[in-house]
């Protein structure tokens, strides 16, 4: 891999909340086209890590270089950065005051400065993609969790981001809806979308991930391709964690 392909270069990333040190020095490179899956026990800092990547959390130490630019530098344009980094949340976070179509259009019109007609067309295309164009005029409260999350995904995609971040996109869903959401994410991955996915879906991690990071206690303890992590973990903590999540029954 050449330096041109590196999207995120993370150097010694630290994040504390008051006295609580959550990220204790993370070094990582994320390249174009990768599907990086982040796994690890609860409280290990996975969400904090992914939220640092679009500056929803301001790092307290280290550097994050994105497309050659230090996003932790003073005076950096956060909003421009976030246009290039799509984010999907566990709780969907569709805009409750807006219809489905406006959930997509309002950011396009106000951030991307698109015309109304153009935005509407783009939005309908994306809704069609996830089979929800008939819900265009519905409000978020009228949708199922799976439908909300699929819309949240295309809302982020609509901005044409360079990378997508997913923080446990299926954890708040009823089991029967997990599949439809993972399917959409898988399709994006198959098209070559760069993504970082925090998930507890180990099957998904193995099938779709191109690389797996195992986080524990604020560090990336182990990383590698899915096959070696799942079949032949080296780190004791990774082994311990995997044995707990894979042999649950």
């Amino acid at each position: 891999m050449t330096d041109k392909d590196v999207l995120f270069e993370i150097k010694g990333l630290e994040k504390s909340f008051g006295n609580l040190k959550v990220l204790k020095g993370i070094d990582e490179k994320i390249c174009k086209g990768e599907v990086v899956v982040v796994i690890g026990p609860s409280g290990s800092g996975k969400s904090t890590f992914i939220r640092c990547l679009n500056l929803l959390e301001q790092p307290t130490g280290g550097q994050i270089i994105f497309e050659g630019e230090d996003i932790t530098a003073k005076g950096f344009d956060v909003n421009k950065h976030r246009e290039k980094v799509g984010m999907v949340f566990q709780q969907f976070n569709l805009f409750n005051n807006l219809s489905v179509i406006d959930n997509l259009c309002v950011p396009l019109i106000n951030v991307k400065k698109m015309g109304e007609a153009e935005a509407k067309e783009a939005a309908m295309k994306l809704l069609h993609r996830v089979g929800l164009e008939d819900k265009a005029n519905a409000f978020p409260s009228q949708l199922s969790g799976g439908q909300k999350q699929r819309i949240a995904i295309v809302r982020a995609m609509a901005m044409g981001p360079d990378v997508m971040l997913f923080d446990e996109p299926t954890s708040a869903l009823d089991p029967e809806m997990v599949g439809e959401v993972l399917q959409v994410i898988k399709e994006l991955a198959d098209e070559g979308t760069t993504m970082v996915v925090v998930t507890h879906e180990m099957g998904f991690a193995q099938k779709v991930g191109t690389r797996v990071l195992f986080m524990d206690q604020g560090y990336i303890m182990e990383q590698g391709d899915p096959k070696s992590i799942f079949e032949n973990p080296q780190n004791e903590r990774t082994k311990d964690f995997l044995s707990k999540v894979i042999n649950v029954i």
Partner: peptide, 10 residues
């Protein structure tokens, strides 16, 4: 809601 809005670049 605020986090989602900011994440869209607003």
């Amino acid at each position: 809601q605020m986090e989602a809005a900011r994440s869209c670049g607003m």
